[in-house]
Nucleic acid binder design. Sequence first.
DNA 1: AGCACA
Length: 312
Amino acid sequence: MAGAGPPHYAPWPPPPGHNPPSMIDVDEVRTIFILGFPPDAKERELQNLLRWWPGYEASQMNFKGEQPMGFALFSSAAAAMAAKDALQNLVFDYETNSTLRAEMAKKNLYVKRGVTGMGTEAQLFDQSKRLRTAGDYTPHYGPPGPFGAPSPASWVPQSYMSPLPAGSYDPYASYGMPPLQSAAQPLVTPVAPVGYVPMQNMKDNPPCNTLFVGNLGENTSEAELRGIFSGQPGFKQMKVLRQGRNTVCFIEFVDVNSAVAVHNNLQGAIVTSSDRGGMRLQYSKNPFGRKRDFMNNQDGGAPGVTTSDTST
DNA sequence: AGCACA
């Protein structure tokens, strides 16, 4: 609208009929609610579970009944639904066997104004009820989670703009993947996967510098995979292979350790463009830079790691 | 489950 330029901070909720400049339906429910937490779950745990999710804006935990109930607000219904799917059946606590259930909420989570402050003050005055936790989009790029926790800190890949081969279908082409958005302008990105789905039935090969990615649907977007992996520490190159209904992918890392880290951190990570939920990460049978006797002197593997080679 | 490329 001509007269209504974007204010510095929009009144929340915005008046009906005044949509933000990015096709966000104000009326749509962008909030999910989550059940299945163990009784001792903390609100902080919910925040930390979700704070990396693209479009995450706020969350709160209610402790009314026996079970804590979590609510989380996202920048769009799409982001909310993606998060909902990702959280679905997520094993929150292996010891108590707590598995999360997520659904779209009936109405949106109310978030107090001034969310950008990450405020101590806010926590002081309404701790019991609505404790809003602003989405902190600070790009905490860096080493992966030191505690073995998933560290999806690089969903917004630095090298996302890598040129695609001509002819390859890039469903993400339309939105240019803005790196990081302030909380003032919610991201519309209906994408940006990642949450985790527990993986089982995992056979695997000995660790090496190359990961094999399985359980990908046929229309998994290479761009998304690249987005997920290219930001990982030690990433070197990637190759996507279409096998009819399956898609598989190979990722080379500079060393085995990097591959191990990603293997652990991203196991079961949700790939939104895939219709199968979580991806399966295994070590490749045929690591990059190493073949039988062929390129024997190549240093493709890890320094110092020589898998017991069956020298026949 | 499905392991290519140099």
